[in-house]
Computed example of a mutant assay.
Amino acid sequence: MDRAIELMMRRLSGIGKLSSEDRDRLASLPLRRRRLAKGEELVVEGSRSSSCCLVIKGYVHRSKTLVTGDRQIFSLHMAGDIPDLQSLHLPRMDHSLVATSPAEVALISHASIQTILDQSSRLTALFWRDTLIDAAAFRSWMLMLGQAEAPVRMAHLFCELYVRSQLVGLDKENSFALPISQVDMADMLGTSTVHANRTLQDLRSQGLVDFARGRVTILRWQALAELGMFDESYLHIVDGPVGEQANS
Rank of each mutant, 00 (worst) to 15 (best):
P30C: 02
R33K: 06
L36R: 04
S19I: 08
S49W: 00
A186I: 05
P241T: 11
V216C: 03
T199C: 14
D118H: 13
R23G: 13
R129G: 07
C53M: 05
R215P: 13
A135W: 10
S63Q: 09
R215W: 11
L235F: 09
E244H: 14
A137V: 11
F158I: 10
L54Q: 03
L161D: 11
D202V: 05
Q114N: 15
V209W: 03
Y59S: 04
S205N: 14
Q206N: 15
G214N: 11
H195V: 08
V67N: 07
S49C: 08
D210N: 13
A37I: 00
V168F: 10
R10I: 02
L117K: 11
A4F: 00
T217G: 01
L18C: 13
C52E: 02
V183W: 12
G190L: 07
M154H: 01
D187N: 09
V43W: 01
A212M: 09
Q114V: 08
E226M: 07
L143E: 15
H89V: 14
Q86K: 09
L26A: 10
L224W: 04
C53Y: 06
A106P: 03
R153Y: 07
W221I: 01
S75L: 10
L227F: 09
L170T: 01
T124Y: 14
S49N: 03
M188G: 00
Q245L: 13
L107P: 00
G80K: 06
T65P: 00
V105D: 01
T100S: 15
R62A: 02
P91C: 05
K64W: 10
D134W: 06
K172F: 11
A37V: 03
Q166W: 07
R10Y: 12
V55W: 06
V43A: 04
S175L: 10
D210Q: 08
E244N: 11
D70P: 00
V163M: 10
D130A: 15
L178N: 00
